[in-house]
Design a protein around this nucleic acid. Structure first.
Lengths: 150, 150
DNA sequence: TGTTGTAACTTGCATATTTAAAGTTACTAT
DNA sequence: ATAGTAACTTTAAATATGCAAGTTACAACA
């Protein structure tokens, strides 16, 4: 049997269109490229939590926005493979993992500050960075959110 | 006939769950609220085009990212109802419309600049703001993208 | 008069993603 | 032996996306 077309190859590979183009950029525009990584309703919420010192899967799950658990898992994988976060095993028996922002992830600081600034200015009932910190951190304890609070 | 439950009312109204909660915030966190408006792969691309002086439906369609036409229509409606853009009829017979950023929309400047900065720093092959301007504007003509270029 | 062209959308449908809920694995604690 | 917890995975239904084709309202040309 001879493969006669690109589509035939694709069907043999059992690769869908979205998988095929998963790493193909839509354009070389930085905005489009960044949106391919961060452009959805949940990813930057996880990044926010990381800025405020959350590190574990169950801590992210506990945030008031209630991210579905499968989406949290998928987003953490995406952020990890994008080099924005690192996953570190901090305990054996039972195995436990901590997620941390890499330098690349910490540099999203400016993006989050810009979003908070715009939200606070134009969306009523929106709370300030300091108030977010109180809500996000568990009991306002050992937060690194000061990174965000400048 | 008497309406006996909230669900009955909802079914009479023919309102789905997502429509019901369309304006209900996930939280009072400004990041979450902003993502409810801008958090997808296309919305900020349209905003980018507006910053670079594009105003018409067909101009947005012509961008190299190739937004599907139904999504463009939906996003323009969302941005309009969010007060980020204005739709103005600039001609009768045949009717033609122009979209413009409101002041609220122009204030997204900082967000776009932060995204471009991060993208240029961490995503290879990503072009600069000046190069984006050349690609986005039709022949580099009468762009207002200087707003973005500071 | 009829044909072609264009802007600004809308509609239909297949596929992909999201959501909510339940299930899994590997342990610790009682 | 039973219950509890962290970190996920799986499933199925609802919703959103992507692509193509269709619509409306005109203008311009032959």
């Amino acid at each position: 049997m001879q493969v006669t077309s690109f589509c035939a190859i694709v069907s043999i590979m059992k690769v869908t269109h979205s998988q095929l183009s998963k790493d193909a950029k839509r354009s070389s525009c930085p905005i489009a490229c960044v949106l391919d990584i961060l452009g959805d309703k949940w990813t930057l919420i996880v990044v926010r939590d990381l800025f405020f010192g959350k590190t574990t899967y169950s801590e992210f799950l506990a945030s008031e926005e209630n991210i579905p658990t499968n989406l949290l898992a998928e987003r953490l994988k995406r952020l990890t493979s994008a080099g924005v976060v690192e996953r570190i095993q901090y305990q054996d028996r039972p195995k436990r993992y901590a997620y941390h922002l890499t330098e690349k992830g910490q540099d999203l600081h400016h993006v989050l500050v810009a979003l908070v600034g715009w939200g606070n200015k134009y969306i009523p009932e929106t709370i300030s960075l300091k108030e977010i910190e109180k809500r996000v951190t568990i009991g306002g304890s050992d937060s690194k959110g000061d990174d965000l609070l400048k």
